[in-house]
């Protein structure tokens, strides 16, 4: 078996008294798109922050490409898209891309080529020279995604990439994600949109600080005798709630 790209072991994460991740284990195999789903506030973004080294866990370990995180140099191999559109609003789309390309250490000779490519993927080529303060919500989201594609990272970590994006563009984004996967990239996506969870290779359900279910959508459907991931998710979530109430 190939080495995992992402590996989290016995991770405990607390904010004050609030336990967000409790003895949390998570592995991602290379060349897979993994969809991380869970109720709002369940800690999906926290998982991502720990993987990037922006938060540190109170216990347990997190590895990316076999290296213990946090590790600054490793970040050049990770494309990250945050849940909020963090953009420099006084700069144009192109200037934002340019800046982050330089931060990622993209070869200067390749910068403009990469900008062309990623902006074509998110269909922003015509808007690149507009200031991002004038972008619509969906445009910001797309630029944000384009930034994470810069540097051609082997691992993409996308926190709700398709919020506020129209259906047609959403489809083209997913097509691009599949294409990237076929090139051998590994992708971790969080989402609230359950039909997107049908498009991933593996679904991971984070509920009450633990990974409650993890597997291929088809297998999960068989296991729970349900036709949609949404129903499975609701089932797992309610099971967990009744478990809690029994305690």
């Amino acid at each position: 078996m190939k080495a995992s790209v992402v590996s989290m072991k016995n991770v405990l994460k607390k904010f004050g008294d609030q336990v967000v991740l409790d003895d949390f284990d998570f592995e991602i195999q290379p060349g897979k798109i993994v969809g991380l789903i869970g109720p709002s506030g369940s800690g999906k973004s926290t998982v991502i922050h720990i993987l990037l080294g922006m938060e540190s866990a109170q216990a347990g370990e997190a590895f990316v490409f076999g290296q213990s995180m946090p590790d600054r140099k490793l970040l050049s191999r990770i494309g990250y898209m945050a849940q909020t559109d963090a953009l420099y609003e006084r700069l144009t789309g192109r200037e934002n891309l340019q800046f982050f390309a330089e931060m990622k250490g993209v070869d200067p000779a390749l910068v403009s080529e990469q900008i062309e490519h990623v902006s074509a993927v998110v269909e922003l080529v015509d808007e690149l020279d507009k200031k991002t303060s004038g972008y619509s919500g969906g445009m910001k989201r797309r630029l944000s995604l384009a930034i994470s594609l810069l540097g051609n990272g082997d691992l993409l970590i996308l926190d709700e990439p398709t919020v506020g994006v129209d259906p047609a563009l959403r489809q083209s984004i997913w097509r691009e994600l599949h294409r990237l996967r076929d090139q051998g990239k590994t992708i971790l996506v969080t989402t609230h949109v359950m039909d997107e969870a049908e498009l991933v290779d593996d679904v991971a359900m984070l509920i009450a600080g633990k990974l409650r279910e993890y597997g291929q959508p088809d297998q999960l459907k068989k296991k729970y005798h349900e036709s949609t991931i949404e129903n499975i998710f609701l089932k797992v979530e309610s099971q967990n709630e009744t478990n809690v109430s029994h305690i």
Binding site: L52, M54, R72, K73, L74, L75, S76, I78, Y80, A82, A86, F100, M103, K104, G105, I147
Partner: peptide
Amino acid sequence: LGRLLATP
């Protein structure tokens, strides 16, 4: 800043 710090 978070995004910046997610680069190397």
